[in-house]
Simulated assay, not measured.
Amino acid sequence: MNDKFDFITNTLIIGGGPAGSTLARELNKHDIDNILIEKNFNYDKPCGGGIKSSVFKEFNLPKTLETKKITNVNLFSNLNSAVFNIKKAPLSIVLRKEFDHSLRLLAKKEGTNLIEGKYKSIECFKDYIIAKIKTNEKILIIKADYLVGADGVKSSVKKDILNVYPKSFLTNYVIVKNKSIDSCEFYFGSKYAPKRYAWIFPHGEDTSIGSIFEPNSNASKIFDDLLKEKDAKSYKKKGFYIPNWDKKSVFYKNRVFFLGDAAGQTLPFTYEGIYYSMRSARILANAISKNEPLFYEKKWKETFEKSFLSYHWAERFFLYSDFMSNKMLDFFKNKKLQEKALLYWDNKAKPISAKDIVIKFFKYFFKS
């Protein structure tokens, strides 16, 4: 260790959620020295906690982290409803505090230096970076070949490097205590969540009710109405932000990478973030192992950009009017269309363009 620095490492990761922890684990597989900084080991991120069940096998995670497995999703719109059978690609519910904690401990067990501390600042040089991290005891000075901002939708790293935060939406939610359910529910249309959706998810032994707010809409009042309808008006509302994917989002600058929510790597329409953050972390680990920073963006776009664009246009097509939201639920009553939609969601079918979405819709509409 150099006397000028408290630590010297290859990769310094800021943020110990699924993105940062998975990156650390993947770097350990490549024998790449890394330090993972998490500002609060007891943090419980507000999150529905839905994740593809295949993640446990894909990332070698203990199945005990799964609190429920969901095989049916109930869909509602202003005038319609449908049951979507997802048994072939089920959804697992995890509690984020336990899930994130376990991922960090796995990373530590596999070789990561895990530190509880808060990112303060960075200096970028041609061949390395120097970061300051504040712990309870002192300010640490860390030199690294690369720094990774995996510090969430209000990323301090991104703000320092690019002078912006990731694009995001505000959401509100309540936790209804001691009321457990066995399915996930999504609510579409102006009655529930204009241009977005509201949800009801199991949350361990409790239930999470939430809504994504479209800016400049009456979504807050509409959410209050939903809480009243579900006998949850007495519960305290809380808010948090979720990323809104931006095709122009920056992946890398000045030896600094952005990952997970900090990079807006949340699938449009569904706003599924955990899985895509973890998959993105694996891509980034490969880029760092090759010492080819630009490989990260190139490979990510090859893997995910078409899917993200497809879901972006599907969201605009189906959620921006009550008529289309109602028609979407008609589609999901068709078993063959359900199976096809599952293939897209499970990344087993080639993504479709905005043009093809419109063509397929009108073919089905007139055939019906």
Rank of each mutant, 00 (worst) to 15 (best):
residue 292 E to D: 14
residue 130 I to V: 14
residue 14 I to G: 04
residue 232 A to R: 06
residue 138 K to V: 03
residue 76 F to Y: 15
residue 223 F to L: 03
residue 325 S to Y: 13
residue 27 L to I: 00
residue 129 I to F: 01
residue 164 V to P: 00
residue 333 K to H: 11
residue 93 I to M: 14
residue 258 F to N: 06
residue 163 N to G: 04
residue 21 S to M: 02
residue 113 N to S: 09
residue 72 N to A: 02
residue 78 N to C: 08
residue 87 K to P: 02
residue 130 I to P: 05
residue 256 V to G: 05
residue 44 D to W: 06
residue 170 L to Y: 11
residue 247 K to A: 13
residue 257 F to A: 12
residue 165 Y to G: 06
residue 350 K to R: 10
residue 263 A to N: 11
residue 327 K to I: 09
residue 97 K to M: 10
residue 363 K to M: 08
residue 276 Y to V: 01
residue 129 I to E: 07
residue 27 L to D: 03
residue 347 N to W: 07
residue 175 I to N: 08
residue 108 K to E: 09
residue 193 A to M: 07
residue 36 L to G: 04
residue 327 K to R: 12
residue 200 I to Y: 00
residue 110 E to V: 01
residue 3 D to K: 11
residue 240 F to G: 06
residue 48 G to M: 07
residue 63 K to D: 13
residue 158 K to P: 02
residue 217 S to T: 15
residue 301 K to L: 10
residue 59 F to Q: 00
residue 112 T to Y: 09
residue 159 K to T: 07
residue 330 D to Y: 00
residue 54 S to L: 05
residue 197 Y to K: 12
residue 349 A to W: 08
residue 64 T to P: 01
residue 95 L to M: 13
residue 361 F to L: 03
residue 108 K to F: 01
residue 70 I to Q: 02
residue 166 P to K: 13
residue 209 I to G: 04
residue 216 N to A: 09
residue 279 R to V: 09
residue 316 R to V: 12
residue 225 D to N: 14
residue 282 R to P: 00
residue 299 K to S: 14
residue 31 D to V: 08
residue 68 K to V: 01
residue 126 K to W: 09
residue 42 N to F: 15
residue 200 I to R: 14
residue 357 I to Q: 04
residue 56 F to E: 02
residue 171 T to G: 03
residue 342 L to M: 11
residue 306 K to V: 00
residue 196 R to F: 06
residue 346 D to M: 02
residue 316 R to G: 14
residue 176 V to S: 08
residue 100 D to C: 03
residue 364 Y to W: 14
residue 29 K to Q: 13
residue 213 F to M: 15
residue 157 V to R: 04
residue 271 Y to L: 07
residue 152 G to V: 03
residue 353 S to R: 08
residue 154 K to I: 14
residue 119 Y to L: 07
residue 219 A to L: 03
residue 46 P to N: 11
residue 19 A to I: 02
residue 84 F to L: 11
residue 159 K to F: 13
residue 223 F to M: 02
residue 168 S to W: 03
residue 292 E to W: 02
residue 176 V to R: 06
residue 289 S to T: 05
residue 60 N to W: 02
residue 317 F to R: 12
residue 133 I to F: 14
residue 273 G to L: 08
residue 205 E to Y: 12
residue 338 Q to P: 09
residue 11 T to W: 01
residue 145 D to Y: 10
residue 230 K to P: 01
residue 210 G to E: 03
residue 6 D to Q: 07
residue 2 N to A: 03
residue 57 K to Y: 08
residue 352 I to E: 14
residue 177 K to T: 11
residue 157 V to D: 10
residue 95 L to C: 05
residue 128 Y to P: 00
residue 277 S to T: 08
residue 151 D to W: 03
residue 317 F to T: 14
residue 215 P to L: 12
residue 46 P to L: 10
residue 174 V to K: 01
residue 196 R to C: 05
residue 80 N to P: 06
residue 152 G to N: 10
residue 307 S to M: 09
residue 298 K to V: 05
residue 43 Y to R: 07
